[in-house]
């Protein structure tokens, strides 16, 4: 099992609490990484924020701040699809966010790290990690933070179909395990996503959902269904 799947499955034990899974993920990241707060912003395909969660109230405020101001590492990370690692907001060079930087400093933030949540061309949102001390994450923490970003991507995929499988969105460790198996090392899933988007005339995000729904309906794995699409046996017209 990948570390990302382990992270998600450990969260499943906690869902009796009042908190949603994305909130639990943010809190868990704060426990295991040398950071002070974590937040997730999820965007729809037009880049409009659909959901903001944080490890605590301040984290949620910090996320909201970027959306209100329309600038910040999260906004940059979503736009470029790249990691934004910023060691110290009070250091020179922080004026790239003229409105966001003073506001975030006022809330006690010094270092911040934004991880794009993406599957190639599918942009889902951003995981933001905030630190009250200046400084970058060391290699091990950078790596762990990437596992949290992977876990957040899997969580979004999982939540996307929460209503489809008839379990009423109950957390399901098996479903997480399946997701992992189907996306790791299967390039045909991405190739098929591109093909389906043209066939059905939809964006990549919807194309992947169609592919997964078809696999679910046929009782096959996503990778098998994808292979059928690539071999032009399965079509989505």
């Amino acid at each position: 099992m990948t570390p990302a799947a382990e992270i998600l499955i450990s969260l499943m034990d906690e869902v009796r609490s009042e908190l949603s899974l994305p909130e639990l993920l943010c809190r868990d990241a704060c426990r295991r990484l040398p950071i002070s707060a974590a937040g997730i912003a999820l965007m729809n395909r037009d880049g409009v924020i659909e959901l903001v969660v944080g490890s605590d109230e301040r984290a949620t405020e910090l996320e909201d701040l970027q959306l209100t101001l329309g600038e910040g590492p999260c906004v940059d990370s979503f736009a470029t699809g790249r990691l934004v690692l910023h060691a110290d907001l009070s250091a020179p060079g922080s004026d790239r966010w003229p409105a966001y930087t003073p506001a975030a400093l006022q809330k006690g933030v010094r270092g911040l790290f934004s991880y794009p949540l993406r599957i190639g061309g599918i942009r889902l949102g951003v995981l933001d990690l905030y630190r009250d001390q200046p400084g970058l994450l060391d290699d091990a923490d950078l790596s762990l933070a990437l596992h949290y970003a992977d876990a957040a991507v899997m969580l979004v995929l999982y939540l996307q179909t929460g209503d489809h499988d008839g379990t009423g969105g109950e957390p399901d460790a098996l479903a997480i395990g399946r997701l992992e198996v189907e996306f790791e090392g299967h390039p045909e899933v991405h190739q098929a996503t591109g093909m389906v988007s043209v066939q059905a005339g939809v964006g990549l995000t919807e194309a992947l959902l169609l592919l997964r729904a078809r696999a679910f309906a046929d009782g096959r794995s996503v990778a098998e269904t994808a292979r059928g699409v690539v071999d032009r046996v399965i079509v989505f017209y």
Partner: peptide, 16 residues
């Protein structure tokens, strides 16, 4: 991440 972008683009080109 771009490796995945290339895979998706291959699918789009294949279909078109």
């Amino acid at each position: 991440a771009l490796r995945v972008v290339v895979e998706q683009a291959k699918g789009v080109v294949a279909e078109r």
